[in-house]
Design a protein around this nucleic acid. Structure first.
Lengths: 192, 192
DNA sequence: GTTGACATACCGTCCGGCCGGTATAGCTTT
DNA sequence: AAAGCTATACCGGCCGGACGGTATGTCAAC
């Protein structure tokens, strides 16, 4: 322990380092995420960082574990808030992406993107944990009672918005979000 | 000019370098795209490469110009192959992503992804040329006579498939492609 | 002999990782 | 209870390698 010193933020060093790494990527991009920078931002020395994460890969791996767990849990909660019935998983995705405030959606998106891109750049295999989560989501969407392809269309559309934002391609305004939500909702009703 | 020399592969050095850079990113990832590696792969010296592209940024910029032009032209062609009428742009996107062979779609996707990711990593601003192209596509999709949001839903779904592939998240099998095509096609008909 | 199209050699920087040290807390032995 | 011992949680400096970029040389073609 020995964690005090008058002016240290209550969180433990490990978490602070993780947060710092994320913040750096968000603010200054993947190439600026160096061990020194992360250590500085977290208020520890480089040696201190390497005590907690024995390599850059270990740091990124931890970052990704956190993300995967967060995403998984977040989606599960969205799912459980919805009544059962055909298309529940797809409706959860839709809600998850388009029924929250734009600010909230963007925040989640940016957090995920930062971790995502940093890990992918270092080694694509680091994405395996979220790949597993996504596979679960996909399975849920594909088997929730909708006509084949309909749920996946919704999921793909949400993923498209994610990508469009992280690469700064386009971003929907409030009206467009509403319109797109309405359009995709048509896919959730039983085929006419 | 002065392009011969008995034993140079028919293409000019500039193009060979561009192709080499793309190939490296595709085969070994963004971090392995170095000037030396690109030069070696293209069969020139590092100095030779720097004669054609005065910096790494210049190389990436050229790569991206090529991509932007290719995408723009490719989409225009897809558009022109379709009869006019409401939803033409959206149908072109759908055709572009789901009415070609899986191999062809993947090939285009991977080429684009390689350039995309390499440029983005070096400097997100390098993506501006394709951002402009995408803005044009988006405009086309948003104003092609469909009910609001419907075209964008299709576009986002295609972008989602793009992202899912480049990050190895998921990939649709032939049946899924067909099903998703059918699902999204429902959005192209006049609202019932 | 000048220019275009390279090749070779080299430099400065930056980054990941390792190492030796150190202060503190807790346990144990006497 | 005093004295050791060990583990934890760091600090600060260093090294080796790689990479982008420059500077200079070369050599055929015109």
């Amino acid at each position: 322990m020995a964690r005090d010193h008058a002016s240290t933020p209550a969180t433990d060093a490990r978490t602070r380092i993780l947060d710092a790494a994320e913040a750096i990527v968000r603010a200054r991009g993947v190439p600026n995420l160096t061990l020194e920078a992360a250590a500085r931002e977290a208020g520890v020395s480089k040696g201190g960082l390497l005590y907690h994460f024995s390599s850059k890969e270990a740091l990124l791996s931890a970052l990704l574990g956190r993300l995967a767990e967060f995403v998984s849990q977040d989606f599960t909660e969205a799912l459980e808030r919805l009544p059962p019935g055909p298309g529940r998983a797809a409706r959860a995705m839709l809600a998850w992406g388009l029924e929250v405030s734009e600010a909230e959606a963007n925040e989640r998106c940016d957090r995920a993107a930062a971790v995502f891109l940093a890990a992918f750049h270092h080694d694509p295999a680091l994405l395996d944990p979220i790949r597993a989560v996504v596979a679960r989501l996909r399975e849920a969407v594909a088997t929730d009672g909708l006509a084949p392809g309909h749920g996946m269309a919704v999921m793909a559309a949400m993923d498209g918005l994610f990508m469009a934002r992280i690469f700064g391609m386009y971003e929907l305004g409030p009206d467009e979000r509403r319109d797109m939500h309405a359009a995709l909702s048509r896919l959730l009703d039983p085929v006419p």
